[in-house]
Amino acid sequence: MLRTAAILGLLAAIGPFAVDMYLPAFPAIEKGLGTSVSSAQMTLTVYFIAFGIAQLFYGPFSDQVGRKPPLYLGLAIFAIGTIGCALSPTIEWLLVSRFIQGIGGAVVMVVPRAIIRDMYTGPQATRLMAMVMLVISVSPMLAPLAGSWLILIADWRAIFWVLFAAALIGIVITGYMQPETLEKHHRVPVNVRTLFRGCRILLTDPTFMGVTFIGGFGMASFFVFVANASFIYTGQFGLSATQFSLAFAVNAIGFFATSQLAAGLGEKFGMERVVSLAVLGFAGFSLLLVALTYAGFGSLLVTISFLFLANACLGFVIPTTMVIALDNHGDIAGLASSLGGTLQMLAGGLFIVVMGPFFDGTTFPMVVAIALCAIASTILTWRILPNTKSTQGERT
């Protein structure tokens, strides 16, 4: 399991790296391309939207041809988009290239989750998912630091050349280290009829839809933070690019640390109960941060501390809801993974678009948006999880 977690984690980390590494470059991109703050943020939004939409393709494709061919295709598209980003002469060029990059990067969200479902269900799948996330945790902890370092010795374009190298490494890992996990007799021919039938099954399954959006609103809160953190930490709080990277890493540590405990607590208390309590914690810390910020106590230390606690609660929520969503759909795991990922990414991307006019480079609009995500997750948890009973064990 450790070897599998390391391989899948390295592949899955490529997508987050494309976000986390260039966050410190937002001000440099704004200045270098002569654009605005909102346009720089839009490069993140278009990536998320493309990342979400493209997942609808990779899941069914992997159910039909196996897990490895989509990885080759997606990573190649990601590499092409990354070259375009590095060579962008204008913000419009960068937006198009980021969209292409997102189309390719989506594969590392879908296929690793489907591979996990090929091998395990229940708490064992949660354990492997958490181990994969531990590997992915390198991204928010080290990628911003690497990005800020590259900006100091080169410029923001160097970040994309590093991402291009990461895509090539991913292709090599897929070819030589990741075995095929979907046997030929388990593959599902994809046509319009089977695709619509599978989507109908998933879209009418209240458990799948409910837990997908419970985790999805949690992820949306991450998107809100990612889209605003560099401007708030460097603008309102006056941090340097390196200091911002360290502050960003602190907020990520809580999530990835608690995600390692999710499987054990799920086995002991039940995965649904763990999610329910963690969502309440997420809502409680988020709302308290809103109150403190509104009252004038939203210092850098307070902001980092409460975001750390809120994200720690999400460490229990997100990997566990991913597993619950796929547990009862092993025969269409690729489609379920892609549809769930698409719904989550689109929800997050659209939430940023809707809240965008309210973001002004200060803390309060950001923490209010995060609290709204927490409230939405809490409402869904109350309505969905009492009627949910997840399966356990290995795939038979």
Rank of each mutant, 00 (worst) to 15 (best):
L289R: 00
A325D: 09
S305G: 10
G284C: 13
G330C: 07
T342S: 12
L292Y: 11
L292Q: 09
I332Q: 01
A295P: 12
V323P: 08
L343K: 03
F282E: 00
L301N: 06
G296E: 05
G348C: 05
L343D: 02
V317Q: 12
F316H: 08
G284Q: 11
F306H: 14
A310K: 11
A347Y: 03
D331N: 13
V290E: 02
G296S: 10
F282Y: 15
V353Y: 06
L314M: 12
A333T: 09
P319I: 08
G284R: 06
F282H: 03
L307W: 05
D331I: 09
Q344S: 08
G284E: 08
T321C: 14
G349F: 03
F297M: 07
T321D: 04
M355K: 04
L307N: 09
I332S: 00
N311D: 13
F351K: 06
A291K: 13
F297K: 01
G356S: 15
D360S: 09
D327K: 00
I332E: 01
L309G: 04
L288C: 12
A333C: 13
S305P: 07
A291T: 15
G315H: 12
A325Y: 08
G315S: 08
D331G: 07
G341Y: 10
V323W: 03
S286Y: 12
F285K: 02
Q344A: 08
M355A: 13
F306S: 08
F285Q: 02
N328P: 11
C313A: 14
G348S: 12
G298Q: 04
G341L: 09
G340R: 00
V323S: 11
L343H: 02
A347C: 14
F359K: 07
A333K: 11
G334M: 08
S338L: 06
T342K: 07
Y294H: 13
M355G: 06
F282D: 01
S337R: 06
S286C: 11
T303P: 05
G334N: 05
L350T: 10
G330M: 10
V302I: 05
F358K: 15
T342M: 15
G298T: 08
M322I: 10
T320C: 09
L343F: 06
S305V: 14
S305N: 07
L346D: 14
V354W: 07
G284A: 13
L346K: 13
L346W: 13
F316Q: 06
N311H: 15
A295K: 13
M345F: 15
A295C: 11
G356M: 14
F351S: 14
G348N: 04
T293G: 00
D327P: 05
V323M: 05
F282M: 04
F316S: 08
N311R: 14
L300T: 00
L339N: 09
G348A: 04
F297T: 00
